[in-house]
Computed example of a mutant assay.
Amino acid sequence: MISASDIFTIASKKESEKITLKVFRHQFDNNAVYKDFCGFLGKDKQNVKSIKEIPFLPIQFFKTHEVVSSQDPVQITFTSSGTTGMATSRHLVTELNYYEQSFRLAFSQFYGNIEDYAVLALLPSYLEREGSSLIYMVEDLIQGSNNPHSGFYLHNYDELIAKLTALDTEGQNVLLIGVTYALLDLIEKEDFKLKNTIIMETGGMKGRRREMIREELHEVLCKGFGVSKIHSEYGMTELLSQAYSLGDGIFECPPWMDILIRDTEDALTYVDYGKTGGINVIDLANINSCSFIATQDLGKKYPNQSFEVLGRFVKWDVRGCNFIVI
C-alpha cells in the first residue's frame, strides 16, 4: 500500500520512478475507467515497466466519467468552470488530506512559511461559483497566514487598492493571487509601485478580455504593478498538485509531480527537450483518482526539468485517443 508519506517525502529520481510505477499498478487495479482505457491501448501491469510506457488518460474523461481509484466515500467534488451548456469536469476527491498536504508543502518549498505573508486574493470568477479547487487552496493559505489583513476580494477594487498599497508601504510581505483579467482591471484603476509584493496570476481571461501571449501579458502586469517579475501557478481541477513559476513563465514542479511532453501527432511517443508538444502530467498526490493525465495544453520541457506552457490545442485531435470511447 502506498502512503502519503511515500509520496510527499520523495527525495530522488530513482525513488520517484519506483513510486510512480507502484501508483500506476494501484490505479490499474482500482480504477475501472483507467483500466479500460489502458486495455484499449494494449497496456497492463505486465508490459508497463517504465514511466514512458504508462498510458495517460485524456483529461476530457473527467467530463464524462467518474475517475476514482478508491472505494472510500467522496469527501468533496471539485468542478471546473464552463460556459452555459458546456460540460464541466468533476474531480471526485476521497482523500482531501492529500490535496491539503500537496499545496501546503509545495507552497512552502517555493515560497517559505505562509505566516510570512499577507495573502490577498482577487478571484471573482472563482468566488462566484461553487466547487473551485483554487478557492479551497487559497482559503486555506489565507487561514494559514494568520494575518488579519489576508482575505478575498470580489469587485471591491478600491478597497483592495488601499489595502495593498498600505501593506506594501509598511514593508509587509504580500502575496496577491489573482485571475488574469481581474489583475488587468486592477492596474487600470491604479498605477502601483510595489516593493514587497509578489503578483501571482492564475491564468484565465474567462471571455472578459482578448487573449494575450505570456510575454505581452507579463510586460503589462509588471509595468502596472511596478514589479520585475510576475509569478504564475499551473494547476487544474483534475489535479491535486500545482507547479509554480517565479518569473518568465518557467515552471517547476514539487517532487511528487512531473511533466512529460508528448508528440502532437502520436500521443504514445515523446518529444525531446526544447520541442513543443502536448503536456502530460504525473501527479502522485492524485493517487485516489488518476495520476496520469494528458492535458490539452501545449508546452516544452528543458533539461533541468523546468517547463513552459505555450497555449492550448484548438481541438482534441491527438491520434490514438480520439477513437476511444468507454
Score class of each variant (00 low, 15 high):
133 S>V: 02
199 I>Y: 07
134 L>C: 12
148 P>T: 12
140 D>N: 15
198 I>Q: 13
214 R>P: 00
181 Y>M: 11
139 E>D: 13
129 R>T: 02
157 Y>F: 12
132 S>G: 05
213 I>F: 12
109 Q>A: 11
110 F>T: 05
183 L>V: 07
117 Y>I: 04
146 N>Q: 08
168 D>H: 02
163 K>I: 12
200 M>D: 01
203 G>C: 08
131 G>H: 01
149 H>W: 14
99 Y>H: 00
131 G>K: 05
172 Q>M: 15
144 G>H: 01
114 I>H: 00
212 M>C: 04
183 L>F: 03
106 A>F: 05
163 K>Q: 13
170 E>Y: 11
198 I>K: 11
209 R>A: 01
105 L>E: 09
119 V>S: 04
150 S>M: 05
162 A>D: 13
120 L>S: 01
185 D>F: 05
180 T>E: 13
192 F>K: 02
126 Y>L: 15
133 S>A: 01
100 E>V: 02
132 S>T: 10
116 D>N: 14
151 G>F: 05
176 L>H: 00
175 L>C: 10
210 R>L: 14
151 G>H: 04
135 I>H: 02
112 G>C: 14
191 D>L: 09
192 F>D: 07
147 N>Q: 08
181 Y>G: 06
142 I>T: 01
153 Y>M: 12
110 F>G: 08
163 K>M: 11
138 V>P: 00
97 N>R: 14
188 E>W: 07
161 I>L: 14
195 K>N: 09
125 S>G: 08
195 K>T: 02
143 Q>W: 10
168 D>F: 03
175 L>A: 09
199 I>H: 09
193 K>C: 06
121 A>N: 00
120 L>G: 02
197 T>C: 13
113 N>F: 10
136 Y>I: 05
208 R>P: 00
106 A>N: 06
162 A>T: 15
178 G>A: 07
129 R>E: 04
105 L>V: 10
163 K>F: 12
128 E>N: 13
